[in-house]
Write a protein that binds this DNA or RNA. Sequence first.
DNA 1: ACAAATAACGTAAACGTTTGCGTAAAACAA
DNA 2: TTGTTTTACGCAAACGTTTACGTTATTTGT
Lengths: 336, 336
Amino acid sequence: MASVTLKDVAKVAGVSYATVSRAVSGSPEISEETRRRILKICKEMGYTPNSIARSMVKRCTNILGLIVPSLNNPFMSELTADLEIYARNRGYNLMACNSSYDHDLELEVFSLLIGRQVDGVIMIPVGHEPYESLSALTKQVPTVFISENMQDYPENYVSVDNYRGMQIATEYLFSLGHRDILYFGARSDSKTHELRLDGYLSSCEKLGMTPHVLRSTYSRSSREVGYALAGEYFSRPHQETAILCSADMLAIGVKQAAYEAGIRIPKDVSLMGFDNISFSALPEIDLTTINQPTQQMATSAVDMLLDHIRDPEAERTNLILPPSLIERKSCRSVRA
Amino acid sequence: MASVTLKDVAKVAGVSYATVSRAVSGSPEISEETRRRILKICKEMGYTPNSIARSMVKRCTNILGLIVPSLNNPFMSELTADLEIYARNRGYNLMACNSSYDHDLELEVFSLLIGRQVDGVIMIPVGHEPYESLSALTKQVPTVFISENMQDYPENYVSVDNYRGMQIATEYLFSLGHRDILYFGARSDSKTHELRLDGYLSSCEKLGMTPHVLRSTYSRSSREVGYALAGEYFSRPHQETAILCSADMLAIGVKQAAYEAGIRIPKDVSLMGFDNISFSALPEIDLTTINQPTQQMATSAVDMLLDHIRDPEAERTNLILPPSLIERKSCRSVRA
DNA sequence: ACAAATAACGTAAACGTTTGCGTAAAACAA
DNA sequence: TTGTTTTACGCAAACGTTTACGTTATTTGT
């Protein structure tokens, strides 16, 4: 596994290894003739530049760290895929780490990535705890959040407009004739979910509806959480005609619980999600939801991060992308 | 962003930087007293070891490369998550790259990872092309495949027993009374899918059934592919009572097409998948399938790779894990 | 034709670690 | 005591690049 280095090539080519370096790195300080000759020798000898050594002297690794709560959630795995592909096209590799929805682990892998000398980190934060320890980390490396959780941080972030998204959802259900809408959400320690809830509440007020809110004690928006909480809900008396979930995965869990409780969707109750994961489009799920423009979020996050890396003094910019309604078959009109 | 180095710490502590190195790296050649003193100073100064520099001299990066066709497939994203978490617990970070089901890209990112000086790579190959260019790469870095595609390669691999898995599936459908089973699979240039098909064929022969095979021209086992191919199938006359798919995602696409064609599952036709992705457990999907022990595959792949890294001369070992039947509601008994 | 500018390449330092070797002091054995 | 081993540390080379600077040969300007 011993690899061939610049020196080996230089010896064969009969030049100094600085010249070889210039040949492979595309420096102008070299004649086209020798460049071609050296490049040919490189091919023959199977030379691959050692990016570790390069990182050493250039003081940048062209590696981006990614901290993501989970890859089991399709929203996040699709986002991760988009991030990786786009970053690679821009010359950066991604070092992805699962935080497993764990706050301490989140911080731990962050400093691990710093030790790895990543040029920047993209973080999808678990929630919003007192983050004094996080800001100590973000000070050490350019960071962008994909989330609205971090509004009180000086770092850039990109996100869908959660507040507006839930307004759109609420207004849509209202337009279908629903007047008793249950908001079904994850724990509120996250700004993201706070904004979604506020969007719902504001629309309720504007439209003259009484809000009904049911929230999980978990911050995790998983199918299991939705299933458990909805099972409890369905077992007790309830009069809401629609359930608005703060995440598609929650809605899918709700649907499962509804199914087992003999409640039909959308016949007995309408159901909405938020995220628009690909599975929501399945005819068996067919979930009306609010779309997050994941691809644009991914490219923008990378762009913003790279800008920040190139110019650390530049002002921070935030990007709030517009959500959109994806109308499917999980909601029915209850007009008289 | 200028970080504090060994020298900075050494200057403050009044020792040589070799001593500081020994303190932080846990060398025995140092007294407990000075170690504690230096470590305290490290904390105070916020010193983080530069792993790039360490990699430089130790000639290993503690980074593993991962090449995966797609993260949109839950089977692969769950596998990726398991790989990352387990690798990190063993002291390695993962650099994951999407090959996007593209053969050339697969090779391209492989050499990119080699340039990154990864200590090893885990690859979920797209298929099985004439891989003379791949073996040139695997010679340069320890590799393990998660797939049965690479049996003629000298590298280790870990996989579920695809052949046996499809036998189990076929026997199960037979036991329910099915005698006309359609095998619905991805393109055959992949050894994995060849083995699955062979498992089906062998069981057909053993049980005295005539095999019916329908194969996609795509190697990608996506919902879209299953949907398209099944749409075509349902639009023509057909008499099979069960459809056995080579992947859950295909089966989900088939289910969608069946739904739109007005064909009920399992009333009109039974449906089976292969993989046991988490979504198959949803009551709306409820797909009977063959389980792949992903977690064990992940840990074994990492273990095998690390063994290979520590002892490059060791003999290669392959690990074929047993599949198991997950019985759900997508198949019905057609006994008389 | 001669000075000045430029092009092409070599020299060597630097990036932040680890580690083999050397050495002085401390500990131990006799 | 003296000799030997051990402990704890410093010195300096090495890992494979990049790049500022120096130098020579060539080109350009007048």
